[in-house]
């Protein structure tokens, strides 16, 4: 079984947020609005977390793209009362929307604040010109989450399904790298992100995740995230 993971090189990341928007279009994330923003309800499955340290003029800013960390020991899946969130055999932490009751316990349990809640029915407005509107751009491989459920990054697992299907039709095993990348990794212009099977030797992720620059967020919590970061410098 592959163990999918991601490596994000913070030294290469420019904080451009292409990953954020690519993810939003890929996964049909709600468009957002002033009200949602003011009330802290914008949903970004991969959020670029800014860290501004120091005082003028010795200021250091850092940008840290934070997708769901897909922990190997996820704190969120344990607490779900209905098993709507779980970790599958390949290490992807999934959220099953039709089962979720919206109690937000998993969201609170997540130490990375990577799970999001649909406070309202997403607004996919009708067009004023009578033609197609935003919903026409929905990716049919991903559902549109209804009001009241928790949602999160899935490592674009729909792409995995398709990639596996493709591999099978070509009668070859799924490659541990390259057959499938999430939308954010595909988009990254600085090539700061890479994705693949952490367990199979030789993949870029498995090499980089063991490099001396590699670290994980809040490792001390023992959640064993599968998103690795490479330090700057």
């Amino acid at each position: 079984m592959p163990r999918w993971g991601m490596v994000i090189d913070l030294d290469k990341c420019t904080g451009c947020q292409a990953c954020t928007v690519a993810c939003q279009t890929e996964n049909n994330l709600r468009p957002g609005s002033v009200e949602e923003s003011q009330r802290g309800r914008i949903i970004e499955w991969i959020h670029v977390l800014p860290v501004v340290e120091g005082e003028y003029p010795h200021v250091k800013t850092r940008y840290m793209p934070v997708p769901c960390q897909h922990c190997d020991n996820p704190p969120c899946t344990r607490v779900c009362p209905v098993r709507a969130t779980y970790k599958n055999d390949e290490g992807i932490v999934a959220q099953i929307y039709p089962r979720c009751i919206g109690c937000r316990y998993c969201v609170n349990a997540c130490p990375y604040t990577c799970k999001f809640f649909n406070w309202s029915q997403p607004d996919w407005p009708e067009s004023t010109h009578g033609g197609k509107s935003l919903s026409a751009a929905h990716n049919p491989d991903v559902s549109v989450r209804p009001v009241g459920v928790t949602e999160k990054c899935s490592f674009c697992s729909h792409r995995l399904i398709k990639a596996r299907e493709q591999a099978k039709s070509e009668e070859r095993p799924l490659r541990s790298e390259g057959d499938f990348v999430p939308a954010c990794v595909e988009a990254c212009p600085a090539e700061a992100m890479c994705f693949g099977d952490l367990d199979s030797p030789g993949t870029a992720v498995s090499e980089l995740s063991r490099s001396h620059r590699a670290f994980r967020l809040q490792e001390e919590l023992g959640a064993e995230p599968k998103v690795y970061y490479l330090t700057e410098g």
């Binding site: 344990r78 607490v79 779900c80 009362p81 209905v82 098993r83 709507a84 089962r99 979720c100 009751i101 919206g102 109690c103 937000r104 316990y105 809640f117 649909n118 009001v147 009241g148 459920v149 928790t150």
Partner: peptide, 26 residues
């Protein structure tokens, strides 16, 4: 109040249909 707090009260019965006894809520 837990039901008030639920995003999907219509799925309340899922707690009995698919219980996860690892969850303190259960």
């Amino acid at each position: 109040n837990v039901i008030f707090d639920m995003g999907r009260p219509d799925r309340m019965l899922n707690i009995f249909k698919h219980p996860n006894f690892n969850s303190p809520l259960l």
